[in-house]
Simulated assay, not measured.
Amino acid sequence: MQSKTWIRLAWCWTVMLWVSSLWPIDTTEMPWWWSWSMHIVGYAVLAALINLSSPRQGPSQAWALTLTCGVLIELAQAFIPQREAAWDDLVSNIMGAGLGVWLTSRRVRLALHLNRRNQRQVSARRVDNPEAAHESPSANPSEHRD
């Protein structure tokens, strides 16, 4: 996917997190594990989308942006009736952001490595045979076998 698509998805997910986090609902009836799992999943997805939208910026920037969003949401919840800012929510936000960055950093590093390897192979082909480097695979239909 293109970077613009990841950016759009990250913005949409951020808006969804803000709306769902600031909606005035009673969260006292939820079990603790439900709240923790929702925070971890929500912020893991956000960190992953941010990391995928700008892979060259690095995972620390994705983690910092995700954490900033989590802190701001927790602060805003202090002013919403039936919501409260909680340290344990912030801890689960940090864990989720770390998980999302870790998972996508491995994927991003692999993609960048494969891209560099492919570029080296193309460069090597150009050096070995400059005419063959400009041919596309579909240019010679006799090479295709069913």
Rank of each mutant, 00 (worst) to 15 (best):
S60I: 15
I7T: 12
R126H: 11
L67C: 09
A97N: 02
Q77A: 07
L114K: 12
I40T: 07
S92L: 01
W32S: 08
R145L: 13
A85Y: 00
H144Y: 08
S53F: 11
V108D: 00
A78P: 00
S92Y: 05
L49I: 11
A78D: 02
L9A: 14
A86T: 07
A76C: 04
Y43K: 04
A133G: 01
S60N: 09
V101G: 04
A78T: 09
R8F: 10
K4E: 02
Y43E: 01
W63K: 05
D26K: 12
C69A: 14
A133D: 11
N115F: 07
E131I: 12
V15Q: 02
T104N: 06
L90S: 01
T5P: 03
E84C: 03
H144Q: 13
A47T: 06
A86V: 05
E143R: 14
E135P: 00
F79Q: 03
D26M: 03
R126P: 00
T28N: 13
Q57D: 09
R109H: 13
P59H: 15
W18F: 09
W13C: 09
L9V: 11
A133R: 01
M16S: 15
L103N: 01
I40Q: 01
E143M: 13
H113F: 14
M30F: 12
H39E: 04
A86N: 06
H144E: 06
P59D: 03
I94Y: 03
P24V: 11
W13K: 03
R116M: 00
L99F: 11
R107E: 02
S3W: 10
C69K: 04
H144N: 03
P81W: 13
A97E: 01
L90C: 04
A64K: 09
R117H: 14
A76L: 08
N118K: 04
L49K: 07
D128W: 12
L46M: 12
A64W: 15
V15Y: 12
L9Y: 13
A78W: 11
A76N: 07
R109I: 02
S105N: 07
A47E: 06
T104Y: 05
S138W: 13
A85P: 01
S136Q: 07
L17Y: 03
L99K: 08
W6M: 06
L72C: 10
D88G: 02
Q57T: 12
S105M: 11
H144V: 11
W36N: 02
M1F: 08
H134L: 06
Q2W: 06
P24Y: 13
W13S: 02
S54K: 13
S136L: 15
S21L: 05
L90N: 00
A97S: 14
R107H: 13
S123A: 15
P81A: 06
I80S: 06
L49C: 07
M95W: 06
S37F: 10
D88H: 14
P81Y: 09
R125C: 06
W11P: 00
E29S: 09
A62H: 09
L103I: 12
E29L: 14
